[in-house]
């Protein structure tokens, strides 16, 4: 009984991290994400979605915070396995997250599809920001999601 009622837990199988400081780090970072996705057997389309989302977020991090740290984790939950990426920066933070998550909004000079577009590419999207202290964005893409 106790087994049955247990809530599914996310278990981290593999941990990797990468510091992003300059624009030249973007392509190696994408390759690192790809390696991890290939390792768990993620299909090409989901890989592409994950890497594209990662690319968008890492660019945001460079643009607004001048860089930061990214954790790359292989995780499992029940019968699912996937990749979790956590982007941590010590930048200015986001004043109004709900506004930043709106389609068409952008404070920078990008196309304004950044955050909401990125969210559509992944299964789980979590953003925390303290104005003046920094932002942490965490995304999960399941292998079959």
């Amino acid at each position: 009984m106790m087994k049955m009622n247990q809530k599914l837990m996310k278990i981290v199988l593999n941990k990797d991290s990468m510091r992003i400081e300059k624009e030249q780090d973007v392509v190696p970072f994408r390759n690192r994400v790809k390696e991890n996705a290939v390792k768990i057997g993620m299909g090409v389309v989901n890989q592409t979605k994950l890497i594209t989302a990662a690319s968008e977020l890492v660019r945001n991090m460079l643009k607004y915070a001048g860089g930061g740290l990214v954790l790359i984790e292989a995780i499992t939950e029940g019968r699912d396995s996937g990749i979790r990426l956590t982007f941590q920066d010590k930048g200015p933070g986001i004043k109004d997250i709900s506004l930043a998550m709106k389609d068409g909004f952008s404070s920078g000079k990008s196309l304004g599809i950044g955050l909401p577009g990125t969210r559509r590419l992944v299964n789980e999207f979590d953003i925390k920001s303290i104005f003046g202290e920094g932002t942490t964005v965490s995304i999960i893409k399941w292998k079959n999601g």
């Binding site: 592409t48 599809i113 577009g117 990125t118 590419l121």
Partner: peptide, 14 residues
């Protein structure tokens, strides 16, 4: 364009 790229761009809204 690769199929996976096309699907991703559509999802991204680009």
């Amino acid at each position: 364009m690769q199929p996976a790229v096309a699907i991703t761009l559509i999802e991204l809204g680009l």
